[in-house]
Amino acid sequence: MGENPDISKLLRMKRYEQPPPGYFEDFVQEFHRRQRAELLRRPTWKIVWDRISAIAPGFHVPQYAYATIAALAVCASVVIISPRSISPTNTLAKADPGVPAISLTSRPVTIGDTLPVSARADGSLPPHYVLQARPVSNEQPLSF
């Protein structure tokens, strides 16, 4: 199947369609000229890469290496950019589950907003308050 003698004979005549004499000698010269021109145009990183490849011909970047590096970079960015999961509110709630959490607002915080955190049973010290994770007291500051 597939061979038609008449058509094949006609097509064989196309073997005679050749370029002008001397063409192939010029072709090799032209190839060298283009190779030199391409070398001059090549970016430096490509030349360096080619040299590295030539030095270590067995070195090949694994197929999924680029995808893995990209995925790791995305994961790292997410971890860095995302807000910290530990907030003052959570710290307070963890420290004393019985104490309601104080939310952070833009409103100025006053003493009245705070709740007593601890006080000694003998009452020797005044009660302490926590204001945005900073200990506060209703004592007057010392002045000399």
Binding site: M1, G2, E3, N4, D6, I7, S8, L10, L11
Partner: peptide, 22 residues
């Protein structure tokens, strides 16, 4: 596949070059 492509191509060429073939 090579043979079937050749068969189909020859048939097409024959139709087109009929007048040149004895």
């Amino acid at each position: 596949t090579v043979r079937s492509r050749l068969f189909y191509a020859h048939r097409q060429l024959q139709n087109y070059l009929e007048e040149f073939i004895k």
